[in-house]
Structures are given as C-alpha cells and as structure tokens.
Amino acid sequence: MNKKLFVIGAVFLLSLTLLVGCGGQDKQAGTIDYPTKPIKYVIPFEPGGQSDLEARRQQRPLEQILGTSIVIENKAGGGGAVGWAELVNKKPDGYYMTGINIPHIILQPLARENAGYQTDQIITVALFQATPIGLAVHPDSPYNTLDEFIEAGKKNPGKITVSGSGTLSGHDIALMQLEDITGAKYQYIPAQGAAPSIQSFLGKHVDAILANSNDLVQHQDKMKILAIGSGETFEPLPEVKTFKELGIDMIASIDRGVAVPPNTDPQIIETLEKAFLEIANDQDIQAQMLKEGFMPLAMGSEESKQYINEMKKEYSVILEKVKK
C-alpha cells in the first residue's frame, strides 16, 4: 500500500520535473506532502494525568511547527494497553500517533497473555520526558540511608511495606530489581495510580514509597528520599543520591514519548521527530518541566528504539527470575 503510494508519488514528481524542464532544487523525488490535515494525538490515559498534560503542553507548539491542527483524544484503559493495541492496528499514514510510556509498553506484552500488541510493533518517534523513580520513607522513619533500609529488608524480610502504583508496573519492577540486587525482601502494596499511593504513604499506612520524581518534588517536605533511579544527579533534587552512586546498579524511570503505527513512512517519522525534538529542546519548556519535577529528554526515533530494546532485555531477565 505504502510502496505503491511511494511509487505513484515518485512517478508523479518525476513527470512534474520533466514537464517543468528543470529539477526542483528544494523538492527531492519521493517527498510526501505531509501533513495536510489534522493529526490525531491519542493519550491512552485519563485526562489530567502526566501523559495527558504533557501532550496538552505540546499541542500549541506542535500546531505551529507542523502547520496543522493537533487533536488530542483520550483512550484510557488497561494501563494504556487498549490505546496501544489500537495504535498498532491503525493505518500508517502519519495522521494517528499515540503517547507511549516506558516500561509499560515493554512489560505488558511480557506479562499478559494477550495485551493486544507487541513492543516492537510500536514505532517510537521520540522520547521527550522522564520521571525517575525514587524511594522515600517517612521523616520520622528509623531508616536514614538506603543502606539502613536494605539492611532492615534483609533482617526482617517482608516486614517493611512499600507503596507503589500498579502491579508489574515501573514501580513494581523497580522494587523487584532492588530486591534482586541486594537480596532484601519487602512487601509491595500496589495502589491504583500515583495519587492513591501518595495518599497511602502520607497517611502512614505503609512504611515506604516508590514514586515518580514529580510527586517526590511536590511532596519532598513530607518525606526522606533515600535514592532516585536517574542515571545522573536529578537536577530538581540535587541532594538526593542516585541508586548508582550508592552502589546499586539500577536505573528506574518512567519515560514518555510518542509513537506511530508499524510501517509508517520514514519521511513522516522524520517530520514528526523533528517537531517533537524541537519542542523537547526548547529552553523555556525544559525549565518548566524541571520546575514541575520532570526530566526533559530529547531522544530521536533510532536512539529510542535502541533504548527500548536494552530495557526489554533487562526486564525479561528480571521477570524470568521472579517467575521462578
């Protein structure tokens, strides 16, 4: 279908150049006129969530760069799976894109019998925002350092309760990773979403929490943050050490980006990639993100693909171990 379109387009342009008599310098053969109509930007989560708000922040600048209107549509359900299952079955014409979250798109196909999609069917255009996952305890908690927390988890396995959002989610897998590396054991209490998890923690119904960086920034005066899962020091929380700095070799983060259906024309991906990266590299937007507790990212299509593949390998190993 697309090859045909490509050939027809090429033939058309070729005859056009022949007719005009001189090669158009700015238009190469095979260029697709894109975009010419509104683009749907689907968010597979409820309105008001982090993914949704990021999309709404991008909406206006995207419209300016791409010169067409962007229609945001929420298709929530199944922790995003319903939206992604729909994405991979859509026509790859560049007018339908969906926000994606890592590790969700990796973990769901691994853990569920039929999530409705496979990770490699999702063609990432760009990754533009991340929330490193941090581990925190109450201000009056007996544990003051990550080491003390790990020691306690070894001495009394399963006695310390840790709140997080969702089962087989980024938080769940981060705790599995921590347990796997250190040999400590905790009791994970999954809440339905970030807000209930924070509530459970602030109400002291659990001993510790795994939370996204924006929530940590927002509630930092009501907790002791022991470590954070970013690769380097996380700018909005400069005093907090990373897991790596504390000798635990793990990265824990929720990364957000956007993707198109499989078999989308590389030119379309390039156009979208450029637009998203331009916004991601915007100084004002980056400053705004940091203030809110997000880590700005600007990863292109190829780079994102490699990153996702690496993470997939890592997670498969952990899940295998847990199943045994």
Binding site: G77, V82, G116
Partner: peptide, 9 residues
C-alpha cells in the same frame, strides 16, 4: 474471554 479490549474493564 479473549477480547483484549476488555482489559480496560
């Protein structure tokens, strides 16, 4: 019942 759509509840 085998429908992926129903994972949304």
């Amino acid at each position: 019942f085998g429908f992926y759509q129903l994972q949304a509840g």
